[in-house]
């Protein structure tokens, strides 16, 4: 159930019980379970049924009563444990921390400054190509509308023009002369 019980048995073995070797394992397990339950009870980490069980032990069982009292003392010890002498005086800690948090914003300013500079450089490099392209972009933009504007008029003019154009313009300018000459030669052959 508890994977860490066995491997650490050596270091965390419960105090030996003067029971006979035969039933020592059983009693140790029982003892361990009881102790674990009692410990969890102390922390309020038990189910209602477990609580009832522990409370019954506390009424009937002197050993459990004694253990419980001991654990309560131990808890009291933990809670009233004096604070160890600080490794450095409080005022020194205060001073150092405040110095650091005040230095850090400055550092962050430096970083922020360099980040802004980097942004600026980045922006310039991004903008500079844009600065040049405006001419071409404008040209494209102005030429595009011109095309779109001209298209409807072409279409409206008639399909004939549109049909004519591909034949002449689409295929490979290099091959067209040959093709046409071929056709011409063919036709001329006829």
């Amino acid at each position: 159930m508890n994977p860490d019980l066995d491997p650490l048995n050596n270091s965390m073995q419960p105090s030996s019980d003067p029971a006979s070797p035969k039933d020592s394992f059983e009693s140790t397990t029982l003892q361990r379970d009881r102790f674990e339950l009692l410990s969890a009870y102390l922390d309020g980490e038990v189910t209602a049924a477990e609580r009832k069980q522990v409370e019954e032990w506390l009424v009937d069982d002197v050993t459990v009563q004694k253990l419980h009292a001991r654990l309560m003392m131990l808890r009291q010890g933990f809670r009233s444990l004096p604070v160890p002498q600080p490794s450095q005086p409080v005022e020194q800690t205060v001073e150092k921390v405040l110095a650091q948090v005040e230095r850090r914003p400055k550092l962050s300013l430096v970083w922020g400054g360099s980040a802004i500079a980097a942004l600026f450089v980045g922006a310039v490099t991004i903008i500079s190509p844009i600065v040049r392209p405006p001419a071409s972009q404008v040209a494209i933009k102005t030429s595009q509308p011109a095309v779109t504007n001209s298209q409807p008029s072409v279409e409206s003019d008639g399909l004939l023009v549109a049909l004519d154009q591909p034949v002449l313009a689409i295929p490979k300018e290099a091959t067209t002369p040959k093709a046409t000459t071929g056709v011409k030669s063919n036709s001329s052959a006829h």
Binding site: N2, S15, A40, G77
Partner: peptide, 26 residues
């Protein structure tokens, strides 16, 4: 959770064994 429960119990067990003389006195 089971491991936590077990570790706490084991730690307590060892501590109360070691400090028995002080804990029983109170």
């Amino acid at each position: 959770l089971g491991t936590v429960k077990s570790r706490i119990a084991r730690a307590r067990h060892r501590l109360q064994t070691q400090l028995q003389q002080y804990l029983d006195g109170g």
